[in-house]
Design a protein around this nucleic acid. Structure first.
Length: 826
RNA sequence: GCCCGGAUGGCGGAAUUGGCAGACGCACAGGACUUAAAAUCCUGAGGAGGUUCACCUCCGUGUGGGUUCGAAUCCCACUCCGGGCACCA
């Protein structure tokens, strides 16, 4: 063996060998328990960053650990390869997005290989290939058949920078989630997925996600935003006029409604924009509201703006006419876009009423205590009804139920629920995405592309042709034949949101090359659910809700048999630098390539897992790298120093050492078995940082052992062999080389995870602390099986303790077996 | 405003169930090796004080209180940092 630790030679040697041996290629094997390790697939930007390194190194340590434990581990990788950056880069550099993307994938793949991650490359997929996206189209058609994909015209979120529509989930604080520039509202026709049909299930099944972080669950719950209430029809002009539905969660307050408010976008409002004074007033308001973007309009401190419509509506509960207003604080896309306003019991209504001088009528009083005389804010708590006709005297809870029944009986309302979740707008007016497989025919209307004509292939386009709705500029693409009547027709030119691609890719991995069907049910049955899914928390309500939705749709289509696809979700902390997210604009980007060049992949992998617990943000500081580099160097020098002791070719590998020989040997052997126990349990609970620390401690113990006399060769060999095994999930190349130097002839990747022997791990003596009144005053050595009363006896006999309790009364002695004695003395 | 997370040496962090705070690593200091440096190896270290040091005392896990024989850990109030939600009727 070489005297120097030459990571370059070692790492490329093993990477090549793993590849030649198809080391990480797996197949379904019903006789072996499976384990599916999934990491969120990367966008192929062209350069691996430290966030990727952290994410994928964690996943890899889990995959290798579980595989050595005997699981059949599926550990795949792919590329989230559609999307705007490719298009923007193409425009900038005048290359087709496809060329740019494929080149990036190639580059990143090389970087992944250099990191030594144990992917089954035979299952690699890129979402931009027709072999993949044809199945997006296929899902789209299945959903279209079921009425889950539909086209609508309405106000949509539009990003001017990206020149495309965004789904609600993709608007973050009024800004585009990607660029981020302001999002404006725009009338547009677009395709949607009916995710709202699944709102209740998406909410209910959150309870099944026992091993998901609480905050992700909470974010999803808030996003779905279920509220239980009632719908009530108010009629224009009187008891028999045209109906306007309102939604309320406080039906009990309905007799306190003193006016109604419609959203500016409410369809009823359009009819009232005439040339009379009412119409002019409304037009002026609409103009004012239009100038506010949505985030501004919904900000907490935004001023309430409204205008009277000149119309009145009939409150069926009270039998009276109330004025109808239009105001910015009512949103068209929640509830029915119209509310009853109860200023006495709703803070927003109260503020609005005060601003415009509208009446306030109290209908709820506190169950106990007296109502505050001149209210300067709304009383929003539940209470007892007053001035509410038949319902006066009831509590809020009773009243809600009885009033809903009453409304249903009388036919002007019913109990209902409302969700904040909106349907998923999937049309994108861009080129680099999956073409939506729909054809428009002047005779037959909207016609789905027949399945046997899939995929609808994206035509090749140059960077210079891209821009606004690019596909509409390609006549050969647009012009087509109607699958129904054979007449001339035109294709849909929108492409799909790239979140469609990532909503089901992890199913595709189970049979990635299947050209007959999107997903083979048997394969999913074997590999699913995903045992652990690792990624950043930034997808808590984007990808992670779309993915759950797709699973439920696929289940209802009979494709899979699960409610939820992922058992454990692990949200990884971000890698930051100097307290800020790494970004080109801040100039604080650290390139993994340079670190790999200088120290090798193993050192980087070891360090990034060692320096912080995986869930926490990691403030990168490369000084600490030296520590891991030195650790591997020390281990190498130890191997080299005793190189003549390792069994060579044809010689038998030493068996288990019998450490009868010396107390020092027993100490080392005990430490070894304790370390195996600790590393195993740390990996099971994802504490990679302390697992690495434990291996470092073990090496320190070995070093101490060999520095104080002639080592037992068998014990040394056994210990180093197990260090190699423990190290394999973190520094796999080093571990392989070490294992082979120690004379093992099969690879370490397929070796078995070591087991600890509880008898050998057991301490022979314990040192327990003795406290007087909670302060440690002495430490005592005792046999490991020391009894509690013996501990007490030893403690009270201890000289230092005697000094401390002299002249006091011992009131109590608390003994924690094998750990501590506390003498309470006053 | 509401909800969630976090705060531990000079730094990253450890402490699995309320039981010896500071594992492991970095940086630092001293020493060995060397012509010298790098690399490597050894040793030291939370802070303050006393004894003249290898023993002892006090303080110490963001702040202030509390529960307990005992609190980094549990409870209450607060400060700061990070994240999410925020006119949702």
């Amino acid at each position: 063996m070489q005297e120097q630790y030459d990571f370059r030679t070692i790492e490329s040697k093993w990477q090549k060998r793993w590849e030649e041996n198809r080391e990480f290629a797996v197949a379904e094997n019903r006789n072996q328990p499976k384990y599916y390790v999934l990491e969120m697939l990367p966008y192929p930007s062209g350069a691996l960053h430290l966030g990727h390194v952290r994410n994928y190194s964690l996943g890899d340590s889990i995959a290798r650990f579980r595989s050595m434990q005997g699981f059949n581990v599926l550990h795949p990788i792919g590329w989230d390869a559609f999307g705007l950056p490719a298009e923007n880069a193409a425009i900038r550099h005048q290359v087709p997005p496809k060329t740019w993307t494929l080149k990036n994938i190639e580059q990143m793949k090389q970087q992944c290989r250099r990191m030594g991650w144990s992917y089954d490359w035979h299952r690699e997929l890129a979402t931009c290939t027709p072999e993949y996206y044809r199945w997006n189209q296929w899902f789209f058609l299945r959903m279209y058949e079921k009425g889950l994909a539909y086209r609508s015209r309405g106000s949509v979120n539009w990003c001017e920078e990206c020149q495309t529509v965004l789904a609600n989930e993709q608007v973050v604080n009024g800004l585009c989630w990607r660029c981020p520039s302001p999002v404006v509202q725009k009338e547009q026709e677009q395709w949607n997925f009916r995710i709202t049909d699944y709102a209740e299930q998406l909410l209910q099944d959150l309870d099944q996600l026992e091993d998901w972080p609480e905050r992700v669950i909470t974010m999803q719950r808030n996003w779905i935003g279920k509220s239980v209430g009632a719908r009530v029809r108010f009629r224009l002009g009187g008891p028999s006029g045209e109906g306007i539905d309102i939604f309320t969660t406080r039906l009990d307050t309905i007799c306190g409604a003193t006016f109604m408010v419609l959203a500016p976008e409410h369809p009823m409002v359009k009819a009232w924009l005439g040339d009379d004074s009412d119409g002019r007033r409304l037009k002026a308001l609409l103009e004012q509201v239009r100038r506010q973007d949505r985030s501004h309009r919904t900000a907490d401190d935004a001023e309430k703006l409204g205008a009277f419509t000149g119309r009145y509506a009939w409150n069926p509960f009270r039998g009276e006419m109330i004025p109808i207003w239009v105001a910015n604080f009512v949103l068209m896309d929640y509830g029915t876009g119209a509310i009853m306003a109860v200023p006495a019991h709703d803070q927003r209504d109260f503020e609005f009423a005060r601003k415009y001088g509208l009446p306030v009528r109290t209908v709820i009083e506190p169950v106990e205590g007296t109502p505050s005389a001149p209210p300067d804010q709304a009383f929003v708590d539940p209470g007892r009804l007053v001035d509410s006709g038949l319902f006066s005297g009831l509590t809020s809870g009773e009243a809600k139920r009885k009033m809903a029944e009453y409304a249903a009986r009388k036919g002007f309302g019913e109990a209902t629920v409302s969700y904040r979740l909106r349907d998923w707008g999937v049309s994108r007016q861009r080129y680099w995405g999956t073409p939506i497989p729909i054809v428009y025919c002047s005779r037959c209307g909207t016609v789905p592309v027949p399945e046997d004509q899939l995929p609808v292939v994206l035509p090749r386009m140059e960077g210079s042709d891209l821009g606004r709705s690019p596909l509409a500029q390609v006549p050969d693409f647009v012009r087509t034949i109607c699958p129904c009547c054979g007449g001339p027709a035109r294709r849909e030119t929108d492409t799909m949101d790239t979140f469609v691609d990532s909503s089901w890719y992890f199913y595709r991995y189970t049979d990635a090359r299947n050209s007959e069907e999107a997903i083979r049910r048997d394969a999913v049955r074997y590999w699913f659910p995903v045992d652990i899914y690792i990624g950043g928390v930034e997808h808590a309500i984007l990808h992670l809700i779309y993915m759950r939705f797709f699973t439920k749709v696929m289940r209802d289509l009979g494709i899979v048999e699960l409610d939820e696809p992922v058992r454990t979700l692990f949200t990884q902390g971000m890698v930051i630098k100097d307290g800020a997210k790494m970004s080109k604009s801040l100039g604080n980007v650290v390139a993994p390539d340079e670190i790999v060049q200088k120290y090798g992949a193993d050192t980087l992998r070891l360090f990034i897992q060692f320096c912080a617990p995986p869930a926490r943000d990691l403030d990168w500081n490369d000084r600490g790298l030296e520590g891991c580099w030195r650790f591997l160097g020390r281990l190498w020098r130890l191997l080299y120093r005793y190189r003549s002791d390792w069994p060579g070719d044809g010689m038998p590998v030493a068996g288990e050492a019998s450490a009868e020989s010396s107390p020092r040997a027993r100490i080392l052997q005990r430490k070894l078995h304790q370390t195996i126990r600790k590393v195993t349990s740390d990996l099971e609970r994802l504490h990679q940082n302390t697992a690495v620390a434990a291996i470092m401690e073990l090496l320190n113990s070995v070093q101490e052992y060999v520095d104080h006399g002639q080592p037992d060769r068998e014990l040394l060999h056994e210990t180093l062999t197990k260090i190699a095994l423990l190290l394999a999930p973190f520094a796999p190349h080093f571990a392989e080389e070490m294992y082979s130097i120690l004379g093992h002839r099969h690879g370490i990747a397929s070796a078995s995870w070591p087991r600890h022997d509880p008898d050998l791990a057991r301490e022979e003596t314990v040192e327990f602390a003795v406290q007087v009144n909670g302060r440690v005053r002495s430490r005592i050595q005792a046999p490991a099986d020391v009894a509690s009363d013996k501990m007490e006896e030893l403690a009270l006999a201890d000289e230092r303790i005697r000094g401390h309790i002299e002249g006091r009364n011992v009131l109590k002695v608390i003994v924690i077996p094998k750990r501590l004695v506390n003498v309470v003395a006053r």
